Amino acid sequence: MKYTAVLLIALCLSGSIVAQKSKSLFNGKNLKGWTIHGTEKWYVENGELVCESGPDKQYGYLSTNKTYKNFELTLQFKLEANGNSGVFIRSGIEGTKISGWQVEVDPEGKHTGGIYESYGRGWLIKPKSEDESKLNPTGWNEMRILVQGDRVTSFLNGTQMVDITDAKIGAGNGFIALQIHDGGGIKVRWKNIRIKEL
């Protein structure tokens, strides 16, 4: 009886450790595990993932080859040359027309951390105006995105930016993607992209 109880506790502990383990989505060397959509530039430089406007100045995406439903995603980004971008969750794509929900990455005052539904309802929720200043406009920022069921919560540099519960998001499923916006002259750096499936 005592042995059985100890064994059950050990199994529970080992299971929780496995469930809580995060893994890297970007190896710092190449784009293995990712797919490029569009003609915008995606490359690795000094161990960082860089997206940059291409000659067509259109939308571009870099999506994970694997789909993710419930997860905690953490990453760091640095805005350069306007830097309009975003992180898509539970998404699909045809050409460069993406479906799903974008956690915004943008210059200060343009709602980084807010959630936008592309080709759908548009802005679902924006950060409070007083939280817009949490963005470091010239240095590295840390973003955490928690997606579980029909709830999405975003954090920027340790501050909760938005928290939304939405049935349509709850029904969604798909890949994670990084975006570069159209317009040209945009450059964003990314690193330490890690995911923990829930």
Rank of each mutant, 00 (worst) to 15 (best):
129 S>M: 12
67 T>K: 01
108 E>W: 11
69 K>Y: 03
90 R>G: 00
165 T>M: 09
3 Y>G: 04
7 L>E: 06
94 E>L: 15
120 G>D: 00
172 G>L: 06
17 I>L: 13
107 P>Y: 10
38 G>L: 05
138 T>P: 00
81 A>D: 14
117 E>K: 05
37 H>G: 06
118 S>M: 14
39 T>M: 07
66 K>W: 01
40 E>P: 04
89 I>L: 11
140 W>N: 02
22 S>N: 14
88 F>A: 03
193 I>R: 00
194 R>G: 09
22 S>D: 15
136 N>F: 03
7 L>Y: 05
61 Y>F: 13
187 K>V: 01
29 K>H: 07
28 G>H: 05
74 T>H: 00
107 P>E: 12
122 G>C: 06
34 W>R: 00
44 V>D: 13
7 L>D: 07
72 E>Q: 13
130 E>V: 06
142 E>N: 15
48 E>F: 12
10 A>W: 04
157 N>F: 04
161 M>A: 05
116 Y>V: 01
156 L>Y: 02
32 K>H: 02
26 F>M: 11
135 L>F: 02
106 D>Q: 14
112 T>L: 05
46 N>W: 10
42 W>R: 06
112 T>V: 06
38 G>Y: 08
137 P>T: 01
31 L>D: 04
24 S>N: 09
172 G>N: 08
106 D>S: 15
35 T>C: 02
23 K>S: 04
171 A>W: 11
142 E>S: 15
29 K>N: 08
94 E>W: 10
38 G>A: 09
168 K>I: 15
142 E>V: 07
154 S>K: 04
76 Q>P: 01
186 I>L: 09
109 G>S: 05
32 K>P: 02
32 K>A: 12
22 S>E: 14
96 T>K: 11
5 A>K: 13
51 C>F: 07
68 Y>F: 05
99 S>G: 14
150 D>F: 10
136 N>M: 04
55 P>N: 11
115 I>H: 03
177 A>Y: 04
156 L>T: 01
185 G>P: 03
122 G>V: 09
106 D>L: 14
99 S>L: 11
28 G>K: 09
31 L>C: 04
49 L>I: 13
20 Q>K: 12
181 H>V: 10
41 K>F: 09
194 R>T: 15
31 L>R: 01
146 L>P: 11
197 E>W: 12
62 L>R: 08
102 Q>T: 10
195 I>Y: 02
36 I>R: 03
123 W>F: 12
161 M>K: 00
51 C>M: 15
193 I>N: 03
114 G>F: 00
14 S>G: 02
178 L>A: 01
184 G>M: 07
154 S>T: 11
